[in-house]
């Protein structure tokens, strides 16, 4: 091998090493003076979102008119709207041994969060009205299954409003008014 080439490579490697060393030392010296309060750095590490979020989902059973809780873990997201979507997708999945009071083919189209009103707007597909089995109790079971579960797990959501294919409807099947948003009604829930 050409000696000149070897010297050149060694020189480049030396220059690269020195440059890296300088950058490293500079970056250390720029961080260290900012750590005035060691507890602050501890808080920063706690803020980091965990990979899984523990949630409690309440389900109806055939034996009881009240919903009972089950613990689940949900993949967390720093984007709240994404987290709500994951949560709703989780609760509208059919579960063995529990009653999910939902019409067949129900799908969440989109959702919005209006921070000033702490209102979550859920836009479901048309199956919510076209495939709904009717009956006051069915409507109440559906509404409070969704509203109670969301409000119970996400304190920043105080109200939930339903849209169907982007439109406001008077009722789902002729009973409960869904033009107005719903507050949770925890009378449907039982902890034990």
């Amino acid at each position: 091998m050409n000696k000149k080439l070897i010297y050149s490579l060694v020189a480049i490697a030396f220059v690269f090493f020195i440059t890296s060393l300088i950058i490293f030392l500079k970056s250390r010296s720029s961080v260290e003076p900012k750590v005035e309060n060691p507890s602050k750095s501890v808080i920063q590490t706690e803020v980091d979102p965990p990979q899984l979020l523990k949630v409690k989902i309440f389900y109806f059973t055939n034996k009881s008119r009240y919903m009972k809780p089950m613990n689940y873990e949900l993949e967390n997201s720093p984007i709240k709207i994404e987290l709500y979507k994951r949560f709703i997708d989780l609760i509208i999945q059919e579960k063995e041994d529990f009653i999910t009071p939902l019409p067949q083919g129900l799908r969440l189209r989109t959702l919005y969060y209006i921070g000033s009103k702490k209102l979550l707007v859920l836009d479901f597909n048309e199956n919510l009205v076209t495939r709904f089995p009717a009956g006051s109790s069915s409507e109440l079971e559906f509404i409070y299954f969704i509203v109670d579960n969301i409000c119970f797990n996400f304190e920043e959501v105080k109200m939930v409003k339903f849209l169907i294919s982007g439109n406001e409807y008077n009722t789902i099947s002729g009973h409960i008014d869904i033009e107005n948003p719903f507050y949770p009604d925890y009378r449907y829930l039982r902890i034990n």
């Binding site: 055939n62 034996k63 008119r65 999910t100 009956g135 109790s137 559906f142 925890y186 009378r187």
Partner: peptide
């Protein structure tokens, strides 16, 4: 006449309006 997702649900119910729990 009522209908429920819970097939065991039975009995009469009487409702009046309220928005507050």
């Amino acid at each position: 006449v009522n209908s429920s997702f819970r097939k065991a649900a039975r009995g009469p119910e009487t409702f009046y309006v309220s928005l507050k729990a």
